[in-house]
């Protein structure tokens, strides 16, 4: 089972990992331990592999810092489901292989602390008796995620997504 961590709108990258916790500032620390360290310390302490982040609009706005996504990857976040994502965050998350979906239905249905079953291969999230369909991803996004991120994608295909 995966625990749902629900957030509001406009979660900025300073909330995900404050700039003071950047690998540049703490080269010997695990940036995964800094995930939501100030905005949601219980996430930093308790989040488990496979847990699901659910949020409202514009998740990940602000800085281009990839270490915000890297911190979530190290925590093995199973998926991020939001109403919408900020552009750079969306790209960084795909690049590092974190599945992310835009689904008003699932965002409305899932509450903080819910225990769900995330089944990405079958595009499903199950909460108790209910099962929700994860939306179809754009082709480029699906292909990058299937490869495990943009670096394995480029290594595998020898080209960028959508490149002729």
């Amino acid at each position: 089972m995966s625990t749902v961590w629900k957030f509001g709108a406009d979660v900025d990258t300073d909330q995900i990992v404050p700039g003071r916790y950047a690998p540049y500032m703490r080269p010997d620390a695990d940036v995964g331990e800094a995930a939501f360290i100030e905005a949601r310390p219980e996430f930093a302490k308790n989040a488990q592999a496979g847990d699901v982040i659910v949020a409202l609009e514009n998740f990940g706005c602000g800085s281009s810092r990839e270490y915000a996504v890297e911190a979530l990857r190290r925590r093995k976040v199973g998926a991020i489901i939001a109403l919408s994502f900020a552009r750079i965050f969306y790209r960084n998350a795909l690049n590092l292989g974190i599945p992310l979906f835009e689904s008003p239905e699932i965002v409305a249905a899932l509450q903080d602390g819910d225990e769900v079953t995330l089944d990405i291969p079958n595009q499903r999230v199950r909460l108790g008796e209910k099962s929700y369909l994860l939306p179809e991803l754009p082709v480029f996004a699906r292909e990058i995620l299937e490869a495990g991120g943009i670096v394995p994608y480029v290594r595998m295909h020898g080209r960028f997504p959508e490149e002729e």
């Binding site: 281009s64 810092r65 990839e66 750079i88 790209r91 960084n92 943009i150 670096v151």
Partner: peptide, 9 residues
């Protein structure tokens, strides 16, 4: 702006 992996590529 882009993230570090995009810049590395």
């Amino acid at each position: 702006g882009m993230g570090s992996t995009d810049i590395a590529l």
